[in-house]
Design a protein around this nucleic acid. Structure first.
Lengths: 343, 343
DNA sequence: GTGAAAGCGCTAACAA
DNA sequence: TTGTTAGCGCTTTCAC
């Protein structure tokens, strides 16, 4: 029988025994240390293959002080935005031999800090998407989370890389687009209260209002998913707005679906815009006008920043601001001159 | 200065020193061992809090032989199906204090086995979604992956739980539905060649054909994403079929989008069905008729099976077969009697 | 009830 | 070039 170690799995000791060398030599061979005699190295390798030996990563991690794993905290794995970030991160990290541990906070903001700490301890670094966490709390836990990369958040600490999408600029561009089509009554279907990215959108909208005093912008409560949009139909119609800026593509899709059920034509009666440009946005009917965020890049960038931190290189650039690109499709059109849906 | 350990982080030794006790006692307190004198326990806890001590999970893992982490291998994190499984798994596992490590094989089937082994070694168990891996290879590596839960695959080994969706039954139900609407010329827009779930669909289709000799079923090559569907428009039109069974919802959406561009009306001219019932399926225009797979349940079930394996309980049930439920929406309708799109 | 010591599987400094 | 030894941070016997 070959199984020797307590765990029942093949360990370095088994290989050492079989090859007639010490653990240390096996370790050297497994790590490509060339100071080992070629013959012995070959013998060790043969033994390893025969026993199907694979080094235990936990033992390695303890000895090396690194896990080759990074963590990511997301508020909602059902959201295509975070799925895309996760995917981009995972792909880029995998290229450098790192794996990704996920922690879904399920939109429970009170859990985010604990979850982040937990995940961080098991990993070499953490990518944090915590839109609801208060600035104070973020500021407090950030140092203990280093290496840390922030998504859509910033802190006072300049050494923490932070990738933020310029939602304010994006929403302004969308509003300008609608105004260019003749709309003078807009409505913003807001995201979750307290969400950082919603805050950025509000700032953008404030700037927009300041420069367009004659345009009416109604604020409507909302959320971040399909249902939010679907349930907002009444409020949207009651607002009398002809151009609706939805918090994101999901909300826009829910809204369009609800409007369709009411017989309201998009964009003939009401124009709708989304945000993010999720893959589905180009397949809705009508196709969705939105602000495109290069979201897979964002995940990859998060890894590159993280890698720089882990390797203790100088930061490539401490903060990156992504400018959304206006993606004009079929859900927005000229304001209707004939039938106004509500007035 | 409190930092003592080599890694620079607060370790159990720091707390022991501060509380004036041994490492062992600190460990006992941290693990809720009640054989510790209450006064000493309190002193230890105070020291831990003051030093913000958090046990190092890697050290724990090595000592305990478990990581409280499970791995999941998915072929494509961009696919909503796997996203949903991941989410269900993550949520259920989190409830029991387990985390999830992801390994995306990016549809490179040759990587799946290595990736699976890698992931398994870092975790206490593995959930494997490897639709392309050959049966032989799966059979070969399965034992070394235990505890292992298979998704949409089975092995000869009865002790390996396997959650499989009955795609065959689902596709038959969809075909029956179309026939019930008067369609006699169907086409199946297949999934990736060699995909296990595609094989199940083909089996179902074969059974369907056997019982409906008068119905014509054209087989078309395909894939699993939007673009596949979009690019299949020509082939679909050329087939002369009036009822199209798309491999999944994504393909169906791509196809509907392509048909729309060609001025082909769904379902007036051609009926289209998908598979999976991803969240977006009810928001397409027209809404998509599909076979609903309780996919979040699948993730949760995968965890429950895994937990039973890890705890060495008897299996709840070694294999679970999910029966898709026909979800009739607006993309399928009576066969058109007037204008046939191609003939 | 508590501490000393061994051990989880590995790497690396140090000796030989 | 190789083996011995000492950790990495923790849990857990085993004495006291």
């Amino acid at each position: 029988m070959v199984r020797r170690s307590a765990t029942g799995r093949i360990g370095i000791a088994d290989v050492a025994l079989k090859a007639g060398v010490s653990h240390a030599t096996v370790s050297r061979v497994m790590n490509g240390n060339f100071t080992v005699d070629p013959d012995i190295a070959a013998r060790v390798r043969a033994a390893a293959v025969e026993l199907k030996y694979q080094p235990n990563p936990v033992g390695r991690s303890l000895a090396l002080g690194k896990t080759d794993t990074i963590g990511i905290v997301v508020p909602d794995l059902a959201n295509p935005t975070f799925q895309a970030i996760l995917r981009g991160l995972s792909r880029a990290a995998a290229q450098d031999g790192y794996r990704v541990l996920i922690a879904d906070s399920f939109e429970v903001s009170s859990e985010e800090a604990i979850l982040a700490g937990e995940a961080r301890r098991r990993c070499d670094g953490l990518v944090l998407c915590a839109p609801r966490m208060s600035d104070a709390e973020l500021e407090e836990i950030a140092p203990s989370l280093h290496p840390l990369v922030l998504i859509n958040r910033t802190t006072a600490a300049p050494e923490i890389p932070s990738l933020v999408v310029d939602y304010g600029q994006g929403v302004q561009a969308l509003a300008e687009h609608l105004v260019g089509l003749g709309h003078t009554r807009l409505a913003f279907l807001a995201g979750p209260a307290g969400s950082a990215s919603n805050g950025l959108r509000l700032e953008g909208l404030a700037a927009f209002k300041a420069s367009h005093p004659r345009v009416d912008v109604t604020m409507l409560d909302g959320g971040s998913d399909f249902d939010t949009g679907h349930e907002a139909v009444d409020a949207v119609l009651a607002s009398g707005a002809t151009g609706i800026l939805a918090f994101n593509d999901l909300v826009a899709m829910g809204l369009m679906s609800g409007l369709h059920e009411r017989g309201v034509n998009v964009p003939a009666d009401i124009s709708v815009t989304g945000f993010d440009d999720i893959p589905f946005a180009r397949y809705t009917t009508p196709t969705l006008t939105t602000a495109a965020v290069p979201i897979a890049d964002l995940g990859a960038q998060a890894w590159h920043q993280m890698r720089a931190l882990i390797r203790q290189e100088g930061l490539e650039t401490p903060g990156t601001r992504y400018q959304p690109r206006l993606e004009i499709r079929a859900s927005s059109g000229p304001v209707s001159t004939s039938t106004s849906p509500a007035r």
